[in-house]
């Protein structure tokens, strides 16, 4: 049903090499650009967190055809959970990050069970409404400190060795987590499990008639996406040293949709590029009031009306390769 505008990914083997070459280039560029300081490393780290968030979101919309309009709840939940664990319980960063991702995965199970009971447009509205409920919960809960958020989150030493207060160490840890998670998503998409997800996206009744329990696969994909979005949220809390309500607000849910739309729905590199573009745009427009919202809105409208394949989608089509 969503197939018309979404690039289909063929069986593994066809374009594997180009994809891995691009991955090597991406990893090399990111590893080299940080230490040179051409671009502010904090900006890249932030963009990488959003890129991971967007990739997690894309796993659902691009490969299962489910548009979640509430993914901010996973980003926000993991941010709060990991920040609380690191600051109040004083656990090591690797533990707080995993705790954050686990909290989001748990939330993913609960909300996923409800949301997959409806399809299409209702799925989007339900995830949006559930996310708004979670937002109000965080607004009122004591441990989130309301409008202030959890500030001054300690970064600590990862595995007792890597001192994350040193910017370059933090940079390479964030980069490593991002690259590993990216490979994991790539692996999921190209696994037999991923193929079944795509079959469900293309024709759910047929997948069911072939004996696949579509709901279980959808839930599994939803929880995976939630956990990976949580990983992004926990990482972001560690980088920014705070967890705030902004990350749980519906604006954030919209932003991640925009990132993926700009980069290319259902492409592998689209979310990464989209995240960098949108975060860069926010940096430039940050000083001038609400024009960021207007600009985002205009990009949304332009993409939907004239540019539904996104940058990477168009590029892949022109070059006749998988990206």
């Amino acid at each position: 049903m969503t197939g018309a505008a979404i690039t289909t990914i063929p069986a593994p083997g066809a374009g594997l090499n180009t994809e891995m070459k691009v991955f090597a280039v991406m990893a090399a560029v990111l590893a080299l650009i940080g230490p040179t300081g051409i671009v502010y490393p904090y900006f890249i780290m932030q963009a990488l967190c959003f890129a991971l968030f967007a990739c997690a979101f894309n796993l659902l919309i691009g490969f299962v055809g489910l548009l979640s309009f509430g993914h901010a709840m996973f980003l926000g939940t993991a941010g709060y959970a990991s920040a609380h664990a690191a600051k109040v319980w004083g656990v090591a960063p690797e533990v707080s990050i995993l705790f954050g991702a686990a909290a989001s995965a748990l939330l993913g199970v609960l909300t996923g069970l409800l949301a997959i009971r409806r399809q299409g447009i209702y799925f989007s509205m339900i995830t949006l409404a559930l996310a708004q409920m979670i937002y109000f919960f965080y607004l009122q809960a004591k441990f989130t400190h309301g409008e202030d958020g959890i500030q001054g989150v300690p970064q600590g030493k990862m595995f007792g060795l890597l001192d994350l207060t040193r910017p370059m160490t933090l940079y390479f840890v964030v980069l490593a987590v991002f690259l590993l998670a990216f490979l994991l998503i790539y692996r999921i998409i190209n696994s037999p499990f991923g193929e079944i997800l795509k079959a469900i996206r293309e024709n759910e009744p047929r997948a069911i008639s072939l004996g696949y329990k579509a709901d279980q696969y959808k839930l599994a994909a939803f929880v995976l996406s939630a956990a990976l979005a949580g990983l992004a949220g926990a990482l972001k809390a560690l980088v920014a040293q705070n967890a705030s309500l902004t990350d749980a607000h519906w604006n954030m849910s919209g932003e991640v949709v925009l990132m993926v739309l700009v980069g290319g729905l259902g492409t592998i590199y689209g979310p990464v590029l989209g995240a960098f573009v949108i975060i860069a745009m926010q940096q430039y427009l940050a000083g001038i009031g609400q024009w960021v919202l207007v600009a985002q809105g205009v990009i949304f409208v332009a993409c939907v009306l004239a540019f539904r394949k996104g940058v990477i989608g168009v590029l892949a089509e022109r070059l006749k390769i998988q990206l």
């Binding site: 018309a4 299409g120 447009i121 919202l293 809105g297 949304f300 409208v301």
Partner: peptide, 15 residues
């Protein structure tokens, strides 16, 4: 797909 209508009107709402 219905989703594009949602996305377009979301963009309009932001504007």
């Amino acid at each position: 797909d219905h989703l594009y209508g949602l996305l377009l009107t979301f963009g309009l709402a932001l504007i």
